[in-house]
Simulated assay, not measured.
Amino acid sequence: MSLHTDAIHVLKGYEGSHDGQAELRQLYLDHLTAHPDGMWKSCASGHVTASALIIDPERGRVLLTLHKKLGMWLQMGGHCEPGDPTLSRAALREAREESGIEGLTLLGSGAPVRLDRHPIPAPCHWHLDVQYAALAPAGAVAAISDESLDLRWFAYAEVPEVADDSVVRLLERTRAALV
């Protein structure tokens, strides 16, 4: 199965109905139908990306990266690569590369936690982000990557003070999935 086919399968199975998620799901599916290259950075009208919020529920904290280009505290994530067999594996790869943490596992059944569409500078116009949550193994030690200015654990209550609404909503959905 191709990554494009996997993304369609994942999105068709995504059941998020909160805060416009059903509409976003359909927008993503329409985009992939119209753009066979819709998984890749080269698709100028927008492309699917994969991200993962790394969470340590035992300590009530999440790991965020201070993105080098955007200067914002965000979850780990980015562009899909030709070697990614699935969207969830792309999210885990990005999380591992940007955090330095081995042994991350996706929360629950490994399904996405939410979707987020955000504008980006030209030549592309949109990231259609499929957002997952990844559990950090006990004793995980993070290491900053070339893509980050900083990497830091934040208590759940601190996230709204440092991150944008997208990250806050991702944390809310992730915490709801933990219950």
Rank of each mutant, 00 (worst) to 15 (best):
D19P: 13
W126G: 05
R93V: 05
H127S: 15
G78R: 02
D84R: 05
A163N: 00
D116Q: 15
R114P: 05
Q21M: 15
A95N: 05
A91H: 05
A176D: 15
G13N: 14
H67D: 13
D129F: 00
I8P: 01
L178I: 06
S166V: 01
A44M: 09
V113L: 13
V162L: 07
A44S: 12
S2K: 13
V162H: 03
T49L: 04
A142R: 00
V167M: 11
V48C: 08
T33A: 07
P123V: 14
P36G: 13
C80I: 10
C43P: 00
W40E: 10
A90H: 06
G77Q: 01
A134G: 03
A22Y: 06
R61D: 07
P57C: 10
L3T: 15
V62A: 06
D164G: 11
M76Q: 04
A34W: 08
G20C: 10
R114A: 07
L135V: 01
L115S: 10
Q26I: 14
A143R: 11
P160F: 09
G38C: 04
L64M: 13
L3Q: 07
K12V: 11
M76R: 01
P119N: 10
A122R: 10
P137L: 01
L115D: 10
R152P: 07
H31A: 00
M76Y: 08
L32E: 03
P82N: 00
A143V: 13
E81I: 09
A138F: 03
T86I: 09
L115F: 10
L66Q: 07
V162A: 08
D6E: 11
H118I: 13
D164Q: 07
L107F: 09
A52N: 03
L106G: 01
A134D: 01
E158M: 10
H31V: 06
A136G: 03
L151Q: 05
A138T: 07
R89P: 02
A155D: 07
L104C: 02
G103F: 04
V162E: 02
C43F: 03
A22R: 08
E94Q: 11
H31E: 02
M1V: 00
L87N: 03
L128Y: 04
G103I: 02
